[in-house]
Simulated assay, not measured.
Amino acid sequence: MSGTSRTAGGQGRVGSVLSGVAVALGCVLFLGGFVWGAVLYQPYTVPTGSMTPTIGSGDRVLAQRIDGEEVRRGDVVVFKQSTWGDLPMVKRVVGIGGDRIACCKDGKLTVNGKEIAEPYLPKGTGAAATGIPATTVPEGRLFLLGDERSGSMDSSVHLGDGENGSVPRGAVQARVDAVAWPMDKFGMLQRPDGFADMPGGLSEPGPLRLMVAAIVVGMVLVLGGAAYGPVAKRVGRGRGRTRPAEAARAG
């Protein structure tokens, strides 16, 4: 066997090993990302347009399973409350226990006397549609509004139900991190800066981006590793045809 043949054979074995490692690692990342996501996240279909334009009717969202104690102002949450119909609902948290909520001052929602910038509301509308009298949120509870204030069955229309229209933190099942469908709205939800400088600040998004990155990288490794064998064989056949032709010319 010539030195060239031995070198080619050695390179082929190394390439085959690396290909196998890439496929194995890719499978771990790809499947691990899906399993990780299934444990932490729950898909939901939003049934109404009360969160328009942030989330529309029929949109599919990915919500991280969290404890109600982790909820912060500005979060979009999935919750279930018996007095609201006992079905999963999606609303935005604008107040937590002890907050004084009112609407409106200069057309803006106020929390503890602070006017809240709400860029997520539909264009050309303001918080005035809710007409919320000064209301204190009971401890351990949340005040929730839809982004489409004029058509949302939220805390503003449940003020007379007791507990000032609020729901207990324990009613929260998950926090929405991203819109998964339709594709033109695909992406992470923006955290609202209007609540950023209030006590407790904003919540941190879950590890969804990391999960997606693991799935994408895993898919690339699996496809790249699986493609190595056919590509290497094709290149090898090309080299094999070239050598006899070179030998004939030399003779």
Rank of each mutant, 00 (worst) to 15 (best):
R243L: 13
P182Q: 01
A245M: 07
V93E: 03
G98L: 03
L29F: 15
I116R: 01
F30Q: 05
L40Q: 15
Q81P: 00
E246K: 14
V176K: 00
D86K: 03
Y228D: 06
G9R: 13
G162E: 02
D184A: 11
V77W: 10
G165W: 02
Y228W: 15
S155A: 00
A196C: 05
P43G: 06
V77K: 07
S156C: 05
Y41M: 09
G225C: 13
V231Y: 08
L25V: 13
D197A: 14
G200L: 08
S166L: 04
N112L: 01
T130H: 10
E204R: 14
T7L: 15
L29S: 12
Y228G: 02
G124D: 05
N164P: 02
R149C: 08
G56V: 05
V35C: 12
C27F: 11
S16V: 09
P207F: 12
E163K: 08
V46Y: 04
S2Y: 14
K91E: 04
D147G: 12
S155F: 01
F79V: 09
G187S: 00
P138F: 06
V21C: 02
G98M: 07
L210Y: 14
M51V: 08
R92A: 08
G126P: 01
L40R: 13
R6L: 14
D177W: 00
N112A: 05
L145C: 11
M198I: 01
G68I: 02
A22Y: 02
P207A: 15
P192N: 06
G20C: 04
I116P: 00
T52R: 12
I215F: 12
W36D: 15
V220S: 10
P230L: 08
D161Q: 09
T136N: 07
D147W: 05
I101G: 02
L159N: 02
S57W: 04
S166R: 01
A227L: 10
L210Q: 15
T83E: 09
M183V: 13
T242G: 14
E204W: 08
E204S: 14
M183F: 14
R209I: 15
W181D: 12
A196V: 02
G113M: 03
V216M: 13
C104A: 04
Q81M: 08
S57E: 12
L221F: 04
V21K: 06
K185C: 09
G200T: 01
V179K: 09
D67N: 13
A178W: 09
L189H: 04
V28N: 11
G187V: 00
R241W: 04
A180Q: 08
P43C: 01
G15F: 01
I132P: 00
W181Y: 13
D67H: 09
I66M: 12
G10F: 09
G229I: 08
L109R: 00
G15E: 02
V76E: 01
R241Y: 04
G229A: 15
T135E: 04
L208G: 09
D197M: 10
G146A: 07
A178G: 11
L62P: 02
A63V: 07
S19E: 01
D197V: 06
V167D: 06
D193Y: 05
S156F: 03
S166H: 06
F30K: 07
P192I: 02
E148T: 10
V35D: 08
M1I: 12
P88N: 09
Y41E: 07
